[in-house]
Design a protein around this nucleic acid. Structure first.
Lengths: 157, 157
DNA sequence: TATCCACTGGGCAATGTGGCCAGTGAATGA
DNA sequence: TCATTCACTGGCCACATTGCCCAGTGGATA
């Protein structure tokens, strides 16, 4: 479950040069190829590394607008709302949360005008009492994991 | 910038089997290897596919708690706050937004108790007027892009 | 002391890679 | 109408990498 220093270096290296091979990794890290292979197998079966899916930029796909919507749900209607939101391609992720809202979702749209269409579709189901949307202007820190990996690796090994 | 149907199939295939090779992809898709190679080069230079970094699960790393914090910033202090948040490993992403809050950030922590430490560190800088935190309970729709890719591919090609 | 475990460093056949090329067919423009 | 351009095909090559195997080593544990 926890990772050691070598695991951390493997993940960081993989993040920097994703198409790198096992052999080249073993050279860079100064360990045997079998070791890298075994570590990677373990990281994946551990669930620490879920996969290596392509990172697609919604903006390059024609969806440059990102927004976060906070939803308030009527008691007992959560399941239906979740199922509905899962069918909307522009809903990139959905969380249920504590606090004033009940759900938080990340949306993308083709334009600010198009965002209205997306939100209409999102709230177009019974059970959503209120939706409050915040449009993203800048993204000073894009989704990242490396600093956390490095911290975890330091602590463990 | 836009993608066609073949691009979409390439991305979907890559998402399903990330370590697949170019030759195997060309077999599955029924096109020549050079075509797949050229498409992938184009998708990457386009910026549609940013990379193939490993997807690391913070929970498996020992950070099972996720939260979203909405921050209100004092006028003109934004730059300092951004720089500060970028130094906190537990801040996985940061956005500046319209609406009642000025910034939205995603946090992880080792436990609910540990979340307090993280938040203290986050707000431990001049310029943050108020912070309001929502803890994530469930994640019915994990971050995804495939449905959007499929929609974009249908529309274009 | 005996056992376990991760790691090393090597060998092997099979496969994939990057690079290259000539030919084809559709779309574009003069 | 003809010439050009472009993406794609399908084939070739030398080379590197992969997956798989093995025996040996050193540290930790029972």
């Amino acid at each position: 479950m926890a990772i050691d220093h070598l695991d951390g270096r493997i993940i960081v290296l993989l993040a920097r040069e994703p198409r790198i091979g096992v052999l080249e990794m073993s050279r860079r890290l100064g360990v045997a190829r079998g070791t890298v292979q075994a570590r990677m197998d373990r990281l994946q079966s551990n669930g620490v590394v879920r996969g290596f899916g392509p990172e697609v930029d919604p903006a390059a796909l024609g969806y440059p607008v990102t927004a976060f919507a906070t939803l308030q749900i009527r008691q007992g209607q959560g399941a239906g709302v979740r199922a509905h939101l899962a069918t909307v391609p522009e809903v990139l992720e959905l969380h249920t949360t504590t606090g004033t809202g009940d759900m938080l979702c990340r949306l993308v749209a083709r334009s600010n005008a198009d965002l209205q269409r997306v939100i209409d579709r999102v709230v177009g189901i019974e059970g959503i009492v209120r939706a409050s949307t915040a449009i993203v202007m800048e993204n000073p820190v894009p989704l990242r994991i490396i600093p956390l990996v490095e911290q975890a690796a330091e602590e463990e090994g």
